[in-house]
């Protein structure tokens, strides 16, 4: 058992973690942030993707005690009040979602891509979300939404 301090979406948080407590479990059950989803729980589906010090990680594979002192960004922290981020707004306007289970992970992977590459090609978008599994959409509207978000950010 260890007290872990994180900055989550810009706000300092502390919680007690066991060695097997994953970052995903801590976010969902101890900090009440249920945006990141528990899908496969083995790092293959991407639905738990969050940004750890700016990098996308599958939070189901991150032991919480190993990231003490880190910055964590989740889908809950993207909007500024009622104003959605470019990626969120583009997903909404382009209807890049159906059941919605993969959406928070997709959005965080897309945010990470646009942070490091504001002008991605279609192939680069496909590559960036290749760790996120979606059963409903066929990916096409998601890729289009990420390209649309990049366009909005440039305006």
């Amino acid at each position: 058992m260890k007290i872990v301090n994180l900055k989550v979406n810009g706000v300092g948080k502390a919680f007690i973690a066991k060695p097997e407590t994953t970052l995903l479990l801590a976010l969902r059950e101890q900090l009440g942030l249920t945006g990141a989803k528990r899908g496969c729980a083995q790092g293959a589906c991407g639905s738990c993707t969050v940004l750890l010090d700016g990098e996308p990680v599958v939070s189901c594979l991150v032991p919480a005690v190993t990231v003490d002192g880190s910055d964590v960004a989740t889908v809950e922290g993207l909007a500024d009040g009622d104003k959605l981020s470019h990626v969120q707004q583009a997903f909404l306007d382009g209807f890049a979602t159906q059941c919605g289970f993969c959406t928070p992970g997709m959005i965080m992977s897309a945010e990470a891509l646009l942070d490091r590459n504001p002008n991605p090609t279609r192939d680069e978008v496909a590559e960036a979300i290749s760790g996120n599994v979606c059963r409903c959409t066929g990916y096409e509207p998601i890729i289009s939404a990420v390209l649309d978000a990049a366009e909005r950010a440039r305006l």
Binding site: A44, D123, V125, I129, S130, V133
Partner: peptide
């Protein structure tokens, strides 16, 4: 039993549609 063994096309493998 999981996504590593159960293959589905990812975003890089979709045809023009």
């Amino acid at each position: 039993i999981d996504f590593n063994e159960y293959l589905m096309p990812g975003p890089g493998e979709i045809p023009v549609q």
